[in-house]
Design a protein around this nucleic acid. Structure first.
Lengths: 147, 147
DNA sequence: TGACTATATTCCCGTACAGGAATATTGATT
DNA sequence: AATCAATATTCCTGTACGGGAATATAGTCA
């Protein structure tokens, strides 16, 4: 019964917001960080959770991981995504997310898709190091991995 | 955000089956036991879970607790219940549940609602002590409650 | 090759269930 | 008052996350 899995994926607010955004367009992790204003670990983990359950797919593009909804979606997923849209359309948080998304897109006038967008964004503003919610961490010193 | 709560309620198979049945008609606990073929504790606990989150309401009728969906439901709940219907309509488990439900109703030709049904059922077949999935336990000896 | 960037993983801790066994509880019946 | 029937609650155990800190990793670029 993988309807259950769908609901499991849906019952966390961060995941809901991610899916809601992906219903609009593919996005990379740093976009989620910007839009959701949540720490990197959190987003990365929830994306992993969704990936393991095949609710999203990931594809590497240079340094970025582009996440998107799978092309072929089970009808249950499709139905629930649609239902989700209806349910959240008046919710301030989700509305704000959409607004932040469209702002992010407009700043790079996206002619040929998200990838070109990313490319350009990177040249102009290498991820806005000081922006709110942007708490990237350096790679830190390496040492023997515990195991 | 109580959409999340809805999804939390939906992400367990037993609860899904319960809600799916309640979308048809109010029912009492022993009916769930019969239809779902699950132990009493399990059903009782999931009903408590749903009650605490106000996804169902309970009303005592003599010895029985009648559970039903609340009269006034949030639009999100309504939407998701509808979505659920669509998603499970071809699922064998849920189809079997509906079949079991209608059988249970037809055996008592329900003229004046579930309560009369219960009344009559009880006289004729006092809960079928040996039936499959029916694992009622006696009240057991009492002793000082630990606390 | 070394530094840097974007993202993933591991470790750790706390909490929320899920499920079953053993009662507890409450109203009805005798 | 004692018993019974229907249902709820408590205790216990195991597991799945959720979140954050500290790295780890892989690609890119100088």
């Amino acid at each position: 019964m993988d309807l259950i899995q769908i609901y499991e994926c849906f019952c966390d607010q961060t995941r809901l917001r991610i899916l809601h955004l992906l219903a609009q367009t593919p996005l990379c992790v740093c976009h989620f960080q910007e839009i959701l204003c949540e720490p990197q670990v959190k987003i990365s983990k929830h994306l992993a959770y969704l990936r393991e359950r095949e609710m999203v797919v990931a594809e590497r593009q240079q340094n970025w991981m582009i996440y998107s909804l799978p092309r072929k979606r089970a009808s249950e997923l499709e139905a629930n995504l649609k239902c989700l849209q209806d349910c959240v359309q008046s919710d301030p948080i989700f509305k704000r997310d959409l607004k932040a998304l469209s702002k992010l897109r407009s700043t790079c006038c996206e002619p040929d898709g998200i990838l070109a967008t990313l490319e350009r964004q990177r040249r102009r503003a290498p991820f806005r190091p000081g922006a709110a919610g942007n708490n990237l961490q350096g790679a830190g010193p390496r040492r023997e991995r515990k195991r």
